[in-house]
Write a protein that binds this DNA or RNA. Structure first.
Length: 585
RNA sequence: UGCCCCGUGGUGUAAGCGGUAACACUUCAGAUUUUGGUUCUGAAUUUCCAGGUUCGAAUCCUGGCGGGGCAACCA
């Protein structure tokens, strides 16, 4: 039994232990499965599946479903399949199949040899359709799409039977055979389930099972010109694979009676469909349609734009699979429609990266600092710890010399209260180096901008500690000008200004809610020389700034681009904000 | 004006058969700190409403109210 690998997410963190362990908090899906295990339904087996349609890129919402399906299987010692729901050749492409596989693998899940396609089952599905026709449970309907809609009735009014509903079985068989043989034009006929046109559930009003589509399929080519609908294909595919728990999102709740109906009429293995609430994240959009729009209208650079909630985007942004899995475990699973604040995702990234990302010194907006009492040719190699959370990460050397750069934000000519950084006449500690004192501020004659600080360093404090015990509250990051490497940094913010992108004035397109500052490109950054060996995709913590990831696409020889995954928590920013709202007397 | 689902602190979730609300995050206040990071301590706040059943209801029943979904030959 390999059920204790635990951490990989899905449901409550850790999950319940197996075999007689006291009951732990579980989400409602785990509770249902436990119930089934107890009652012996499915013979104690648990087999799930993640069933994407290959018509777009995976996003964080899919990650929730992936973690749930693979997680629950893992936890109960079961299996999870990857199955592409490829029943609509007009929308689906191989390009998506490949990207989806890659994303699931990247997230850390393994479907082993169980990669399936609904299209693998087209022959079986067809045979079952014939069976239903024979049983009088399905018929060929000559109504057009418009006519079908018209016959369906409305939410409050029952529908009317199709005039073709009572066709003799032999005629149905013949017609269906000829549909399949390509005798009829697209849309001219359908195969429909014969259920109940007066059902209060519209899905039961003789739903379409097969439509004529003379389209080439990415896997079956031109073998078929009729294709099963989702409702007819999905449950039967589950059945074929021996799925026990068919987990899907809430909008399929009303489809469950139909899911059950097909399986019952066919008399085949009958999985349990369970619905859960899809993930909504603040400040972004999740629907394929809207994501596609952002990409097509050029509001983002592509599907992997680091501002997008797509898995390829998050990956490029610097999110690790672990952080995404932890996030999915933390948000839980329920049937209530909720919106999770983006800060939860960001926290998950901080949590994970804090433990693993090596620390480096990098300056985003450099301000020149000259140490007037340090000889020009003097270079000191200082020891810096790579990760205080992980002693095994060791230390590295950082060069220190007369001309340095510090962050512009770390100097204030007129410091507000509680500002612990550098200011005229004040002292600050340079991380891993020494304490310096600002003696003089050099300004640009024209603009009045501060262009250089002339400081002195205290040789007694080399290493950072003051032997006289004097307290220096601030510690700032820095870089040696002569040794630093140039870099570009991309700072990201929410794609949308408001938590709910739909919350725009009447008549305004949702694009109006886009945050104009969601991307800020900084080209004059300077980073410590050890970063010369940074590889694409590497994660770092720029001390005091945030977590950054080497952009795999735009970095190359002679050019390093860092994507800011997320900032560090910044309690000074909070203090400052408060001061701005209510300035001290 | 039909059917289905849902309603627990600010947020997200828990409380197998009804037993007296918990966890995480956020917030606030401290401590530690050569990252205003991390970590640690403490505090604050909760069962949509109204009836009913019961010794006892977040849990069961009824009725409201509120939110979501459904009328593709999409998934």
């Amino acid at each position: 039994m390999t059920s204790s690998q635990g951490s990989a997410g899905g449901g409550a963190a850790g999950g319940p232990g197996r075999g007689g362990a006291p009951p732990e908090a579980a989400n409602f899906i785990q509770a249902i499965i436990r119930e089934h295990e107890k009652s012996g339904r499915f013979g104690g087996r648990v087999h799930t599946r993640f069933p994407p349609e290959p018509n777009g890129y995976l996003h964080i919402g899919h990650a929730k479903s992936i973690c749930l399906n693979f997680g629950v299987a893992q936890e109960f010692g079961g299996l999870c399949n990857l199955r592409f729901d490829d029943t609509n050749p007009t929308k689906e492409e191989v390009e998506y199949v490949e990207s989806i596989e890659e994303s699931v693998r990247w997230l850390g899940f393994d479907w082993e040899e169980r990669l399936f396609f609904a299209s693998d089952y087209f022959d079986q599905l067809y045979a079952w359709a014939v069976q239903l026709v024979r049983q009088g449970d399905a018929y060929v309907c000559d109504l057009s799409a418009d006519e079908i809609r018209e016959h369906r009735g409305t939410l409050t009014r029952p529908g009317r039977n199709s005039p073709y509903r009572d066709r003799p079985v032999a005629e149905n068989l013949d017609l269906f055979e000829r549909m399949q043989a390509g005798e009829f034009a697209d849309g001219s006929r359908t195969l429909r389930a014969r259920i109940d046109m007066a059902s209060p559930n519209l899905n039961m009003r003789d739903p379409v099972m097969y439509r004529i589509l003379h389209a080439s399929h990415h896997r079956t080519g031109d073998r078929w010109c009729i294709y099963p609908t989702y409702d007819y294909a999905h449950g039967q595919s589950d059945s074929i694979e021996g799925i026990t728990h068919s987990i899907c999102t809430l909008e399929f709740e009303n489809h469950r009676p139909l899911y059950d109906w097909y399986l019952e009429r066919l008399g085949i293995h009958h999985p349990q469909q369970i619905e859960f609430a899809r993930l909504n994240l603040s400040h972004t959009v999740m629907s394929k349609r809207k994501l596609l729009r952002l990409v097509e209208e050029g509001r983002v650079s592509g599907w992997d734009d680091p501002r997008l909630p797509t898995l390829v985007g998050l990956r490029r942004r610097g999110y690790t699979p672990q952080s995404i899995r932890a996030f999915c475990a933390r948000i839980g699973v329920a049937k209530f429609n909720s919106t999770i604040d983006m800060s939860w995702l960001e926290d998950a990234a901080r949590d994970d990266l804090n433990a693993r990302a090596p620390r480096v010194l990098g300056v985003l907006r450099p301000l020149r600092v000259v140490l007037t009492n340090l000889p020009e040719d003097r270079v000191v190699e200082l020891d810096a710890v790579n990760n205080p959370e992980d002693p095994a990460a060791g230390t590295r050397k950082v060069p220190f010399s007369r001309v340095l750069c510090i962050e512009q934000d770390d100097f204030r000519e007129d410091p507000p209260p509680k500002f612990f950084r550098l200011a005229p006449g004040r002292e600050v500690r340079l991380r891993y180096a020494c304490i310096i004192k600002c003696e003089e501020v050099v300004k640009d004659a024209g603009s009045g901008a501060v262009v250089e600080l002339r400081c002195t360093y205290d040789p007694a404090t080399l290493g950072g500690r003051a032997p006289d015990g004097r307290k220096v509250k601030g510690t700032i990051h820095w870089v040696s000008s002569a040794h630093a490497l140039p870099a570009e940094a991309r700072l990201y913010d929410h794609l949308f200004l408001k938590p709910d992108p739909e919350d725009v004035a009447a008549g305004e397109a949702f694009a109006a809610g886009l945050n104009p500052d969601s991307l800020q490109v900084l080209r004059g950054c300077l980073v410590e020389p050890s970063l010369a060996s940074a590889a694409p995709g590497d994660h770092f913590q720029f001390e005091r700034l945030g977590y950054f990831c080497v952009d795999p696409l735009d970095s190359g020889p002679g050019r390093t681009v860092f994507n800011r995954t997320v900032t560090l928590r910044d309690s000074w920013a909070k203090v400052e904000k408060k001061q701005a709202v209510a300035p001290p007397p």
